[in-house]
Write a protein that binds this DNA or RNA. Structure first.
Lengths: 109, 109
DNA sequence: TTCATACTTAAGCATGTGCTTAAGTATTAG
DNA sequence: CTAATACTTAAGCACATGCTTAAGTATGAA
């Protein structure tokens, strides 16, 4: 797991427009136009967001004829979830150790 | 769960310096100097990163005397994990539905 | 061949981010 | 009181981000 991959993945998820695109794409594939239509911005702007998502690895796309179809690639979604989940667990374990230490100190006093 | 909270949380996690700070803080609280010392940058720069983490809600701090102690607040960590995990699940369910649909189509042919 | 569709690229601009050094404030040790 | 410590704020600069409009390319329909 390369660190700069997480940079791009979290950065991609930091934008509400891009989270909306992910939200749409987890339901199934969609074309660029379909994805851009509901967004309150120009088509080129929407495509920049899609490019960020593709560069992050969250989304893949392929062009057939003149239509580009986008879909979720779950790998980076899993990696991001994993990174955050692991840190939350580490935090919990530190708390547990602190609790055990305090219990022990109390027992000795 | 307000959306702009996720904006700030994911943006905070998108930077390797800030992830390193989180990595340190999940082991337990630390002062500003302790956190800044290993970083390859000036103290003011490190403090800007800490400010981003605090504004995102990932970290809290309190000053006693002239020393500010920082610690993880796990709430936003959980929320970020939850958002990503839920979307990954939604994607899996879409795949399942597609599989079921294809099985059914095949059975009818 | 002509036209509409579906993207794609380019240019430009406003704002935000990440860092620097320098100077300042507040607290505590001597 | 004096000085060191631990942060804090300010000013400034380079570069990235998020958008715009305009123009361009490639494909498919008529």
């Amino acid at each position: 797991m390369l660190k700069y991959e997480l940079d791009r993945t979290f950065a991609a998820l930091a934008d509400p427009t891009r989270r909306a695109l992910v939200e749409r794409l987890v339901q199934g594939p969609a074309t660029v136009s379909e994805l851009a239509r509901p967004l309150p911005m120009s088509l080129p702007a929407a495509m920049l967001h899609l490019k960020v998502l593709e560069d992050s690895g969250l989304v893949t796309s392929q062009k057939v004829g003149r239509v580009r179809t986008c879909r979720i690639d779950p790998k980076m979604l899993s990696q991001a979830e994993h990174w955050v989940g692991e840190r939350r667990q580490m935090w919990e374990r530190s708390l547990d150790r602190l609790g055990a230490f305090l219990d022990q100190s109390e027992a000795q006093s």
